[in-house]
Design a protein around this nucleic acid. Structure first.
Length: 356
DNA sequence: AAGTTTCTCAACCGCCGCGCA
DNA sequence: CTGCGCGGCGGTTGAGAAACT
């Protein structure tokens, strides 16, 4: 098409932004909004192209950005969503408030991908490479993988529906805010919520139809939707090996917010900061969320493998070297895992069967 | 202590889809 | 209907930092 470049290549600065440039950009946007990115640099007195300004703003200067280490919960969410969505970083970012797609992409490429690979999980397919991970059976693996595939298809359809609804709502209302893409998928106008819900109901319905051998879903009525509850081999807190999608109706009145609750949240471990001494639990989670492994719950419940596998996960040191053979012999590790189990047990609803 | 390798992440590049004229 | 401009997205790069030899 012979399109012109996004900006004049000559005379524009590239590379790292200086504090002065940041200040200029920040001051301008705070006063005027960004408006047209293409026109912004000249107005703000910056020798940058609009694209560079937009990137700097969205990835760094925006006030609603959370920086620093990813929490364990965020890591789990990223892996879960990547298994469902693939490299759709912007879609993944909509599920991680205050994180940018660029940051998530970087974190995946530099940390999570390597760790999954190291554990014998293909970071692309999220399937076990060897098929022997954590002693899982082939039968379990294939069923879990099939289930995940269904979920991926439905999540994809759901996202498309959300995008469509967002577009429709945009047509009906005023122009969206500059950061609309970060809002559009969670906040749905009441006028379109019913359509949105159709998709979500179908999504939930399909999950019922999946007839997972390890999970059944029941629904209890709520004011405007369904709230899935779970019974998994008599344990009510685990759906498949991953977590659960839940809708929160109480947040914004008529607005519906769908949210993925990780297993740790379901189990009552949410809010625990990622600490060095939490790596073992983290690794256990990785084994579970692979979609093909025995799962965190499985490891905890399966007496024949639980402590062994958990200890192997725990054995991974911070320098990235997997210390095979450093098993449950360490008394500290035992205490640690007992502590985790105790925490899990203490946070379970009274009617839930205890871990053994 | 110095050189080399590896890791991290901000920033860039190019393509794509949408909206407008 | 078509072409163009723009914003957004995902892949990639490269400079600096950290780790290793």
């Amino acid at each position: 098409m012979g399109r012109s470049p996004c900006c004049e290549k000559i005379g524009l600065k590239k590379g790292p932004w200086t504090p002065e440039e940041d200040q200029k950009l920040l001051a301008y946007i705070e006063e005027h909004g960004h408006g047209s990115w293409r026109a912004l640099p000249a107005k703000a007195g910056l020798q940058r192209c609009g694209k560079s300004c937009r990137l700097r703003w969205t990835n760094y200067l925006r006030p609603d950005i959370k920086r620093g280490k990813f929490s364990l919960q965020e890591e789990q969410t990223i892996i879960q969503l990547h298994a469902l969505l693939g490299n759709r970083w912007s879609a993944i970012a909509t599920h991680l408030p205050k994180r940018t797609d660029n940051e998530i992409k970087n974190y995946w490429n530099t940390h999570l991908k390597k760790r999954l690979a190291k554990m014998g999980i293909d970071p692309v397919t999220h399937k076990s490479v060897s098929g022997t991970l954590t002693g899982t059976t082939d039968d379990k693996s294939s069923k879990a993988a099939a289930s995940l595939s269904h979920m991926a298809q439905w999540e994809s359809a759901r996202l498309e529906a959300e995008e469509r609804l967002a577009r429709e709502s945009k047509m009906r209302t005023a122009a969206p805010t500059p950061t609309a893409r970060h809002v559009q998928q969670t906040n749905v106008p009441a006028s379109t919520a019913s359509q949105y819900l159709d998709v979500l109901h179908a999504w939930q319905g399909a999950k019922i139809d999946l007839e997972s051998p390890t999970s059944t879903l029941t629904f209890t009525g709520s004011n405007s939707g369904m709230l899935p509850t779970h019974t998994t081999n008599g344990l009510e807190v685990s759906e498949s090996n991953s977590g659960m999608w839940q809708r929160s109706d109480e947040l914004e009145g008529e607005e519906s917010n769908w949210q993925f609750f990780s297993k740790h949240q379901v189990l009552g471990l949410e809010g625990k900061d990622r600490e060095e001494d939490f790596i073992g639990c983290e690794e256990a989670w990785f084994s579970g969320i692979a979609g093909v492994g025995a799962g965190f719950t499985g490891m905890l419940l399966d007496g024949s493998t639980s402590e062994h596998d958990a200890s192997e996960c725990w054995g991974e040191s911070s320098n990235g070297q997997t210390e095979h053979g450093n098993q449950a012999s360490d008394e500290e590790d035992k205490n640690y895992w007992n502590g985790i189990l105790g925490m899990v047990n203490s946070k379970l609803p009274p009617q839930s069967p205890p871990f053994v």
